[in-house]
Design a protein around this nucleic acid. Structure first.
Lengths: 205, 205
DNA sequence: AACTATACGGAACGGCGTTCCGTTTGTCAC
DNA sequence: GTGACAAACGGAACGCCGTTCCGTATAGTT
């Protein structure tokens, strides 16, 4: 190895640029954890010992920075879906995965709000989020539908949307109440063993 | 009637002040409908033909303005809970009320986001929202629990929180998908007629 | 050592919420 | 009608923010 071990034509990146990119990433991670994903750019820049211009050069969109910070954990959450799907029957796999998603969202203050905000600064987020998670979750849903343990009229995208909304709760959440509501939602997805969901009454004027 | 037909000591309000208060309310209603509850103050002021200072004098907190605009409809939604509770068995009453809440939230762009944002500008909102709705919904839940048709371990506050989160969806929502997820959540609240919720499997390593 | 593409920092711009105060105006006493 | 005063007004001003832009500094090369 001498000059360039990945691509051919373009110049290798400057050493200071690489250092700064890493510093920004670390600073953003800290700022996001402390202040949420809408932490002020100037704050992140100061933590990284860098001007704001430097952040924007490496991460032209705010969402690029968010994605860079969380990609690793997002990948893990996605992989978890596959792992659970192979180890548990669909309903239990889904329950456990919902827990994992809940933990992810709950520790990323403001992430879910950004996800659902519609704010143009966060536009690419929902698409990426769903594209990483939905296929794996859909597989669980399909398996459950095939064996009759889960209803078959709910799409993974909508379920993930709903779960991430329910999980995005304010600070400490002492009683794990958000987890409870996610569990209730998942109960609503179950089919009883007889193959029909319970509907004790059906008044309909 | 001559000087003052409501209270004794203080001066009656000036006529222009009354006019302006009404104009601001109407302008805010229009702006909220068009731009969401975070519509710029200057925009609202301009619509009302008024300076921003005038808005802040009548509504010192942004949340005061929001409450003033939506109070009537919020009252109606709360009253609807009582009406439905007296007309339908608990599960159906709950379903119908969730629909009503969904319609309320869906037509108030940004209202639910504000409700759950944690932003200090909206701090009083959640308390008021819950204090108006929770008691009536709790009555339905209690009735359902008493007759065994609903599970008894979910509090109205948490349910309302969850429903308002699920209902807050982006623009047109062509397929009524948010309504679907709310329905799934409510299904999860049901107890089957035998008095036990279905739990087809219970793997637990 | 000189050169140049690359990257840097932070001033500058526009938009926002909110505050503040000099000015206007409704109301009442006369 | 006229004057005076409290009430209310409007919008400039302040501080915070995201984002852009460009003169300056420098890593890497020759």
């Amino acid at each position: 190895m001498s000059t360039n071990d990945t691509a051919g034509p373009p110049r290798p990146k400057r050493a200071d640029a690489v250092r700064n990119t890493e510093a920004v990433l670390a600073a953003a991670k800290a700022a996001f954890a402390e202040l949420g994903v809408d932490a002020p750019m100037r704050d992140i820049a100061a933590r990284a010992g860098v001007g704001v211009g430097t952040i924007y050069r490496n991460y032209p969109q705010r969402s690029d920075l968010i994605i860079a910070v969380f990609r690793r954990e997002l990948d893990a959450t996605a992989a978890e879906a596959d792992r659970l799907a192979s180890e548990y029957p669909a309903p239990e796999a889904l329950r456990r995965w919902a827990d994992a998603l809940g933990r992810f969202v709950a520790t990323k203050r403001g992430f879910a709000s950004a996800l659902h905000s519609g704010d143009p600064a966060y536009r690419p987020l929902p698409g990426l989020f769903l594209s990483m998670l939905a296929p794996r979750v859909q597989a669980i849903l399909d398996a459950g539908a095939a064996e009759g343990s889960l209803r078959d009229d709910i799409r993974a995208e909508d379920l993930i949307h709903a779960l991430s909304r329910l999980a995005d709760d304010q600070p400490a959440d002492p009683d794990r109440r958000t987890g409870r509501m996610s569990a209730v939602l998942l109960d609503g997805l179950l089919r009883s063993p007889q193959g029909e969901r319970p509907r004790p009454d059906a008044s309909n004027p």
